[in-house]
């Protein structure tokens, strides 16, 4: 089903390979070089679909980030039991004694 609403615009935002590679690094994902063009094209089509939003004038419209109208949800500063270390580390893929283990952090 293709809705009347989404004519095939030419891409306005050019989703290029270098851009996709940059975003993939930011997202800590890998894109195999053989896939990069396909992924870029696919994202390009989605971004084009999304850009139909630009048909709407939203000047002065207050963004709505969350429909909740609630304010002031707090908890009191009362300690609650923590997990035991065994429970806390039970799902960890790599641990030594008391710690989680990761490749050496250089920074």
């Amino acid at each position: 089903m293709t809705r009347h609403l989404y004519p095939l615009f030419s891409l306005r935002m050019d989703i290029t390979r270098p851009l996709v590679e940059k975003v993939a690094l930011l997202a800590r994902l890998e894109i195999p070089p053989a896939d990069a063009d396909r992924v870029a094209a696919q994202l390009g089509r989605i971004v084009t679909m999304v850009e139909t939003l630009n048909k709407l004038d939203t000047k002065g419209v207050e963004p709505l980030s969350n429909p909740t109208g609630l304010v002031d949800a707090f908890r009191s500063d009362e300690p609650r039991p923590s997990l035991s270390r065994d429970e806390a580390l039970a799902n960890a893929p790599d641990k030594v004694e008391m710690f989680l283990r990761v490749p050496r952090v250089v920074e």
Binding site: E78, P79, R80, S82, S84, R85, M98, F99
Partner: peptide, 22 residues
Amino acid sequence: TRTKLFCGCANKYGADPNTLVC
């Protein structure tokens, strides 16, 4: 504070590693 910012674990210095977590 007595506890962390978003959970009830104790805000305490010097405890054994990974014992103040939830």
